[in-house]
Design a protein around this nucleic acid. Structure first.
Lengths: 244, 244
DNA sequence: TATGTACTTATGTATGTACAAAAACCAAAT
DNA sequence: ATTTGGTTTTTGTACATACATAAGTACATA
């Protein structure tokens, strides 16, 4: 990997440094809470000022990719695969940002008659077909989540749509639908035969089950989503603040 | 409101400025995308350097409370979403609100040496004892959650404290500790013998496991909480909104 | 009227410098 | 053996300064 920086580039230095650090901490030697070189040395190595270096580091600290510790140094935060509730990045983008490459194991589109819950959520008659999207996704080693999504017919999705793109980006750009509100319910379950088979785990293994209801600006229903997460490999994180 | 800053205070200037800005943009005159005074002027008014002011502004920009615009200035972002996942009600109050009466099956206070994770979270040495609070709670028919909480020694909790009261209310009124920020991690697990016994379920039944980290206004650690929820009786809900 | 150009004003980028504070470390004193 | 206190290392805070860049504004010009 190239540990230098182009001072002539039009890209701001601190951005270059930020990207460099992002790459750096993806390397195997920095995975396990290892310390970065200290700021003085690192700024010397990169031939930039400590101030500029700190500007880049600060951003990654804010994203919780790095953790500072006085006298000790700055170390790589322990990375978990997690989903931040308020983060409106797509699943893939979210994971890539954390250094996890997402692989699609299966991707299947079909039109089905909605069951009672789905029909009820979309407020449509059960004889009106809806689009069903099934996706088995994970890291390059193994699948760790099985998604089932249903979309409201109003949106006008077709099989020609590119479901390999970030979903909400595609909806926004191709169908002018902006996902604005989501309600989620998270619970624990055991895997039935179908899910166990998909996720390559034993029947009755624990899974994290997430129902997600997505709405647009006008609070009209867009998506009804079920997610089955392999328990060991997934943690759902929530951050909340109280204002006095 | 007081628009000045205490240069003699031990609180870092940029934190003071940050807090001041947070207050400022809550005022009615700054609600509707109004512009802040420009950086030069604001730094002059507050008698701080522009660098320090920018340090504070940057943080709020990162939190999407402020938006910078070249040549225009920095304006208040359109109202932020609030993730109301943790209700900031106490568990009991929360449940009572849903019409469930809470029964305490067990309540046990002890002083223990923290394990590595707890010591690390509180940032204390592992030979400093912390208070451990174990609670088995549920509805009148059956227990459905087992909580283990550790509290930072700084708070000064004793066995004499009344743990039957709503916890955060007690902390606030008796120990002047205000829980302001919480980070939670939710995952699925199976019950080991200990937990299965407590929750009166089979070993290896699925449980919802929640780690909760609670901080005060200054983001100092207060409580390290583990919750083991009987799967059938608990669903975690999250609502989040995006603003365009 | 439309268009280009210089000016102005705000944020953006980058550096150098200085001292403070926390914590690990180590040695001396008890 | 344990406490105490100083030393060192690393991040934390703060300032002054300089120039770059984007985007309005105003004015001259075709």
């Amino acid at each position: 990997m190239n540990l230098t920086i182009d001072h002539q580039s039009t890209i701001p230095l601190h951005i270059q440094v930020e990207n460099l650090l992002r790459e750096l901490i993806k390397q195997p030697e920095y995975q396990a809470g290892k310390l970065l070189p200290n700021e003085m040395e690192l700024s010397r190595i990169l031939a930039i000022s400590r101030t500029t270096l700190r500007q880049a580091i600060n951003k990654l600290v804010y994203e919780e990719l790095l953790v500072r510790k006085k006298r000790l140094g700055t170390k790589v935060a322990h990375q978990k695969m997690s989903s931040k509730s308020m983060n409106w990045l797509s699943f893939t983008q979210e994971m890539e940002a954390r250094g996890v490459t997402i692989k699609n194991y299966e991707l299947h589109v079909s039109w089905v008659f909605p069951d009672e819950q789905v029909a009820n959520f979309f407020d449509i008659k059960p004889d009106k077909k809806v689009m069903k999207l099934e996706r088995l996704r994970g890291n390059p080693q193994e699948p760790f989540v099985y998604f089932v999504s249903y979309f409201h017919p109003r949106i006008g999705l077709t099989s020609d749509d590119d479901f390999k793109r970030p979903l909400y980006e595609m909806l926004e750009q191709e169908h002018y639908v902006v996902a604005t509100l989501s309600k989620e319910e998270i619970s624990a379950r055991t895997a039935d035969r179908f899910i166990a088979n998909k996720l390559e785990i034993e029947v009755d293994s624990p899974i994290l089950f997430r129902k997600r209801f997505v709405f647009d600006q006008a609070e009209r229903p867009i998506e009804y989503n079920l997610g089955y997460y392999k328990a060991e490999s997934f943690v759902y994180t929530v951050e909340s603040k109280r204002t006095p």
